[in-house]
Measured scan of single mutants.
Amino acid sequence: MASQGTKRSYEQMETDGERQNATEIRASVGKMIGGIGRFYIQMCTELKLSDYEGRLIQNSLTIERMVLSAFDERRNKYLEEHPSAGKDPKKTGGPIYRRVNGKWMRELILYDKEEIRRIWRQANNGDDATAGLTHMMIWHSNLNDATYQRTRALVRTGMDPRMCSLMQGSTLPRRSGAAGAAVKGVGTMVMELVRMIKRGINDRNFWRGENGRKTRIAYERMCNILKGKFQTAAQKAMMDQVRESRNPGNAEFEDLTFLARSALILRGSVAHKSCLPACVYGPAVASGYDFEREGYSLVGIDPFRLLQNSQVYSLIRPNENPAHKSQLVWMACHSAAFEDLRVLSFIKGTKVLPRGKLSTRGVQIASNENMETMESSTLELRSRYWAIRTRSGGNTNQQRASAGQISIQPTFSVQRNLPFDRTTIMAAFNGNTEGRTSDMRTEIIRMMESARPEDVSFQGRGVFELSDEKAASPIVPSFDMSNEGSYFFGDNAEEYDN
Rank of each mutant, 00 (worst) to 15 (best):
K113V: 02
Q459A: 02
M426S: 00
Y52A: 15
A129V: 15
Y148W: 09
V186R: 00
L353Q: 15
S269G: 13
G295M: 08
W207Q: 03
I57Q: 03
N247E: 00
T373H: 02
S402N: 10
A2E: 11
L358Y: 05
L298E: 02
K87V: 06
E380K: 10
A251Y: 13
N250Y: 08
E434V: 09
F429D: 06
V312R: 00
A146R: 00
G394A: 09
T147K: 04
A153Q: 03
H272Y: 10
L56G: 00
D16H: 08
R355G: 10
W139E: 04
C223L: 11
T360A: 11
R99L: 06
S50R: 07
T147Y: 08
M239G: 04
S326A: 07
G86D: 12
R75Q: 09
A366H: 03
N417A: 05
P83K: 14
Q58D: 02
A251V: 15
R436S: 06
N368T: 15
G94P: 02
S467N: 15
F489C: 10
R355H: 04
D128F: 12
S413G: 13
P173L: 03
Y289V: 15
N319P: 05
M1A: 13
K357V: 05
N417Q: 13
D16Q: 13
L276M: 15
A427I: 11
R162M: 13
Y281D: 03
E254Y: 09
L341S: 00
T442D: 02
G282H: 08
F291L: 08
L256R: 06
R361P: 04
N370D: 12
A278Y: 02
L79I: 11
Y111N: 12
S413A: 13
C223S: 12
D497N: 13
R55S: 08
A493M: 09
A85K: 15
P83H: 10
G435W: 10
Q149G: 02
M43E: 09
M1K: 13
V414Y: 09
S367E: 09
S482L: 04
T390V: 05
F420W: 10
F71H: 08
T437R: 08
S407I: 08
D302P: 15
S473K: 14
G180A: 05
F464G: 01
T147R: 02
L47S: 01
G462L: 00
Q409V: 15
L328G: 00
S457W: 12
P283S: 14
I347W: 05
Y10V: 05
V67N: 09
W386V: 06
A251H: 03
N59I: 08
Y52H: 04
N370S: 13
M191R: 07
E115A: 05
M1C: 13
L276P: 06
F253W: 03
M222K: 12
Q364D: 08
S383L: 00
E375Q: 15
T257F: 14
I217Y: 13
A332H: 00
H140P: 00
I408R: 00
M189T: 12
R26K: 15
P89D: 07
K91G: 02
I445L: 14
S486W: 09
S165F: 09
V414I: 15
A366V: 09
T45G: 02
V463T: 13
A233C: 05
S28Q: 15
N368V: 15
E494H: 12
M222D: 08
S450F: 06
G17C: 10
L226E: 07
T215Q: 03
R38F: 07
S165N: 15
L193Q: 15
T6Y: 02
D72M: 08
R389A: 02
L108P: 08
Y219F: 12
C44P: 00
I138F: 12
S473C: 14
G431T: 10
N59T: 10
R305M: 11
I347N: 11
R446H: 03
G54L: 11
R400K: 15
R317Y: 13
A153L: 07
T424L: 05
G132K: 03
R98F: 09
E443I: 08
E494L: 14
R422T: 11
R261D: 08
L466P: 09
Q409P: 01
D203G: 09
A260C: 15
E192G: 13
G94F: 05
R221E: 08
E369P: 01
L56Y: 01
S367A: 15
V186N: 11
R175S: 11
A70C: 15
K227R: 14
N498I: 15
R246L: 09
G158D: 13
F464S: 06
G295H: 07
V352A: 07
G185C: 05
E81K: 07
S473F: 05
E254P: 11
C333K: 00
I265A: 11
R121N: 01
H140S: 07
I445P: 01
Y40N: 10
Q4S: 15
L154Y: 06
F479I: 15
E252I: 02
D127H: 13
S69K: 02
A387C: 14
M371R: 04
G34H: 14
T232Y: 08
R156Q: 10
I445V: 15
L133C: 01
M191L: 15
L47F: 10
C333A: 14
K90H: 07
D468Y: 12
Q4F: 15
N76F: 01
A427C: 10
F479N: 02
Q241W: 04
K90F: 07
M440Y: 15
R261G: 10
V476F: 00
D421Y: 15
S3W: 03
G17D: 00
V270S: 12
D290T: 14
E320A: 06
E80G: 14
L143H: 07
H135Q: 15
I225E: 04
V463C: 09
Q168M: 09
Q415M: 04
R461E: 02
A218R: 01
Y281I: 08
K87Y: 05
Q20R: 09
V299D: 11
A181I: 02
Q168I: 06
G158K: 02
S84W: 08
V363I: 12
V155G: 08
G300H: 15
L328D: 00
A428Y: 05
Y111I: 13
P474V: 03
V363C: 15
R305T: 15
A472T: 15
E372V: 13
E73Y: 02
R261Y: 08
M163H: 02
R391W: 04
F39R: 00
P277V: 01
E220V: 12
W139H: 07
E320R: 00
K227S: 14
A401C: 09
R204I: 02
M196G: 03
M239N: 05
W104I: 12
S367W: 07
T350Y: 06
V194K: 01
K31M: 15
Q122F: 05
I475E: 02
Q149D: 04
T62F: 05
E375T: 13
F458Q: 01
E294V: 10
V186C: 06
G394Y: 04
E339N: 03
E380Y: 09
R195D: 01
G228S: 10
P453I: 14
R293G: 03
D290G: 11
W120V: 04
Q20F: 12
T360Q: 06
V312A: 10
M191Y: 02
E320L: 04
G268E: 09
M481I: 13
N144R: 00
A323D: 02
R117N: 03
R422P: 09
Q231Y: 04
M238E: 04
E11M: 08
W207Y: 09
K184S: 01
S467F: 05
A146P: 07
G169T: 05
R74D: 05
D160P: 03
D160W: 10
S377R: 09
I475C: 14
G185E: 11
G185Y: 07
A129Q: 08
L307Q: 00
M137K: 10
R221H: 09
N76L: 11
F39G: 09
S50K: 00
P419C: 13
A493I: 09
R441N: 06
V100D: 01
M448C: 08
E469Q: 12
G295P: 06
Q122A: 00
S170M: 10
D72R: 01
A284L: 15
I36V: 12
P303I: 02
L193H: 05
K357G: 04
P283D: 00
L68V: 10
S141D: 02
T396L: 12
L79E: 02
V190D: 02
F458E: 01
R422E: 02
S314H: 01
E465F: 02
L110I: 15
E254T: 02
V280Y: 01
E107A: 10
V270G: 04
Q311A: 03
D497Q: 02
P453T: 12
T171H: 01
G431Q: 05
K357Y: 14
Q311V: 15
R150D: 03
Q415Y: 04
R416Y: 11
A179E: 09
A146Y: 03
